[in-house]
Design a binder for these strands. Structure first.
Lengths: 109, 109
DNA sequence: CATTGACATAACCATATCGTTATATAACAG
DNA sequence: CTGTTATATAACGATATGGTTATGTCAATG
């Protein structure tokens, strides 16, 4: 799915993850988000564009500013996708692991 | 962290996610993994390289073949990262949101 | 209405990514 | 050894990504 592409790609950048971490503490304007970073404001602006396209944030005009908020949908999608694989690192993994190792010679086409 | 970069970037590609889905059903050789796709074998080979670098799979020689398995570490890392944000789409989101707006906590990146 | 402040967009450059085809390597079969 | 099979690596081109500086837009303000 294209949406998952966009979401995981958005999460792959440390600047964007830091922006999300900041927004987890509450809304912020673009300027506030840009301040901690050594990169230019247009660069931040494009990161926000990517995050918005991935449904990870939402932006809305607030007078002269633009207020950014976390948006659950993108995060939820990524999390749901990963949940399918949760059994591979859960406590029951070892049992499953050994089970699969025994069947290694069997038909797996 | 750099590891999360690699893991999320690896998950951003639909071919690689399909490979993981296939491996969730059991080990497979490179050839078996390549078969369902319309792309060349070298392309698959590089996708596997990316997945391995992201700790999402493990490859080991098996005579003439190379057997690929899911590896939990990468998946676990990604899932742990997302877990921090789980509250933002849980039912208690509104209360936590207001709470966080006053008291802010740990950094998460 | 002219200016300033906050943000977005455009144009550009360097590097990364994903595909290709051609070739190398490693193990097995004869 | 020779050939075949399974996989990796190399070299290349197209497109994507992430940064920059310059400029445009819109709201607030004197």
């Amino acid at each position: 799915m294209k949406q998952l592409d966009a979401t995981f790609a958005a999460l792959a950048d440390p600047v964007r993850r830091a922006i999300l971490a900041r927004l987890a503490q509450g809304d912020a304007t673009v300027g506030e988000l840009a301040k901690p970073f050594a990169i230019s404001q247009p660069a931040i602006s494009r990161h926000l564009r990517v995050l918005e396209a991935a449904s990870l944030i939402r932006r809305e005009r607030d007078g002269q500013h633009r207020r950014c908020r976390l948006e659950a949908r993108g995060l939820e999608r990524a999390s749901e996708w990963l949940d399918f694989y949760r059994r591979f690192w859960s406590d029951s993994f070892d049992r499953l692991d050994k089970h699969l190792k025994r069947k290694t010679g069997a038909s797996h086409d």
